[in-house]
C-alpha cells in the first residue's frame, strides 16, 4: 500500500539525539554535529592495548596537551565524510579539466627544457614528503582523542595521498617514470633534500598525536605549501613561463589555504585551553620550526638561488603572525 504521507504533520517527540541536545540545546542538530560529536567510545573500555598495557585503547594522555573536552576542537569547514568527499570531488573535476587542458594542448612541451627540469627537481621529491604527511596524519587520526580532532586528520591524510598522486601524474605529464625515479633518488641522497627527509623521518618517530599535528600540519606544511605552491609555482615559475604547472598544482594551492583555516582553528582552541597547553605548543614550535625553516631553504633555493633566504624569512614572518593570531605565546 502506497500512502501519501507528506500530508501528515506530526509533532516530533524530540529534536536530536540526547548527547547533541546536551551539547547544543533542544533543537535539530546539523549533519556535521550528528556525524562528529561523541561518536568515539570514552568509558568502560574493556582491555588494555597489547602494545602497551599502561595505555588505554583511546587515551587522551598520549599527548602532553590536555583538554577538559576534546570536542571543544572544531573543524570550521564542518567536514564529515560526505561534505569532505563532495568538496574534494568538485576540486577533482577542476583538476581533471586542468590536466586535460594542459595535455591536449601540449602545453607542457612548450616549456623550455631547463624550466621543466627545474619544476621536476622541485616537485618530484615532494611526492615523498606528501607520503610522510599522510603517515603522520593517519597516526593522529588513529591515536588522537575525540572525533572532531581526529576525523579531519584522516581527511588530511587522504588529501596528502591525493597530492602525492597529483604530483606523480604531473611528473608523468612533464617527464616520464624516470623523472619520478630521479626525484626519489634526490629525496634519498641529494644534500638539498636531506634536511626535509630527516625532519620527516623524525616526525614519523613521534607518538604524541598533537606534537605530530604541530610538527607536520602547523609548522612544516605551514612553510612548505605557501612557499612551494603559492610563491614558487604560482608566482615565480609562472612568470618564467611555467604557468601550466600552476594549473596542475591548483589543487595544492587551494588546499593549502583551505586547510590552514582548520589548522589555525585547532591550534587556537588548544592554546586557549590553558597555559600548560600554550607551553607545550611553544616548546614544540621551538623544537620544529627552526628545523623546518632549514629544511625548506635548500628546496626554495632550487628556484630562487640566493634569494631563497629572504623568501623563507618572509614566510617565517607570516608564520609568526599566524601563531600570534592563534594565541600561541608563552
Amino acid at each position: 500500500m502506497q500512502i501519501d504521507l507528506r500530508t501528515v504533520t506530526i509533532e516530533p517527540q524530540r529534536h536530536a539525539y540526547d548527547h547533541l541536545e546536551q551539547r547544543f540545546g533542544a533543537k535539530p542538530a546539523s549533519r556535521y554535529q550528528e556525524a562528529s560529536y561523541d561518536i568515539q567510545a570514552v568509558e568502560n573500555l574493556h582491555y588494555r592495548p597489547t602494545w602497551d598495557p599502561e595505555q588505554q585503547l583511546y587515551d587522551p594522555d598520549l599527548s602532553r596537551v590536555r583538554m577538559r573536552d576534546w570536542y571543544a576542537i572544531k573543524d570550521p569547514r564542518q567536514f564529515y565524510y560526505s561534505s569532505y568527499t563532495l568538496t574534494r570531488a568538485r576540486q577533482q573535476d577542476t583538476a581533471e579539466a586542468n590536466f586535460a587542458f594542459v595535455e591536449s594542448r601540449g602545453l607542457s612541451a612548450l616549456m623550455p627544457g631547463e624550466l621543466t627540469a627545474q619544476v621536476l627537481a622541485l616537485l618530484m621529491p615532494l611526492r615523498h614528503a606528501a607520503w610522510g604527511a599522510n603517515q603522520n596524519n593517519t597516526l593522529i587520526c588513529g591515536y588522537g582523542f575525540g572525533t572532531t580532532f581526529t576525523q579531519p586528520c584522516m581527511f588530511q591524510a587522504m588529501d596528502q595521498l591525493g597530492i602525492a598522486q597529483y604530483l606523480s601524474r604531473l611528473g608523468l605529464l612533464l617527464g616520464d617514470p624516470e623523472s619520478l625515479g630521479a626525484g626519489k633518488r634526490a629525496w634519498m641522497v641529494d644534500a638539498t633534500w636531506q634536511p626535509l627527509r630527516h625532519y620527516t623521518e623524525d616526525t614519523m618517530a613521534l607518538r604524541d598525536p598533537v606534537e605530530v599535528f604541530v610538527a607536520q600540519n602547523l609548522v612544516l606544511d605551514g612553510l612548505l605549501y605557501p612557499l612551494v605552491y603559492e610563491h614558487l609555482v604560482d608566482d615565480v615559475l609562472s612568470a618564467r613561463g611555467a604557468s601550466c604547472v600552476a594549473m596542475l598544482t591548483q589543487f595544492m594551492s587551494e588546499w593549502g589555504s583551505e586547510t590552514r583555516k582548520w589548522i589555525d582553528a585547532v591550534t587556537k582552541t588548544l592554546a586557549a585551553e590553558s597555559a600548560d597547553n600554550r607551553a607545550a605548543l611553544c616548546d614544540w614550535i621551538d623544537r620544529w620550526l627552526p628545523r623546518a625553516a632549514l629544511a625548506v631553504l635548500p628546496i626554495v633555493a632550487i628556484v630562487l638561488g640566493d634569494q631563497a633566504q629572504s623568501a623563507v624569512e618572509d614566510q617565517m614572518t607570516d608564520f609568526a603572525g599566524r601563531l600570534g593570531k592563534a594565541g600561541v605565546t608563552r
Binding site: 588494555r48 597489547t50 602494545w51 602497551d52 598495557p53 599502561e54
Partner: peptide, 10 residues
C-alpha cells in the same frame, strides 16, 4: 600468555 610488546600483568 597474551602476546604483548611490553610486560602485560594479570
Amino acid at each position: 600468555a597474551v602476546v604483548a610488546l611490553k610486560p602485560y600483568p594479570l
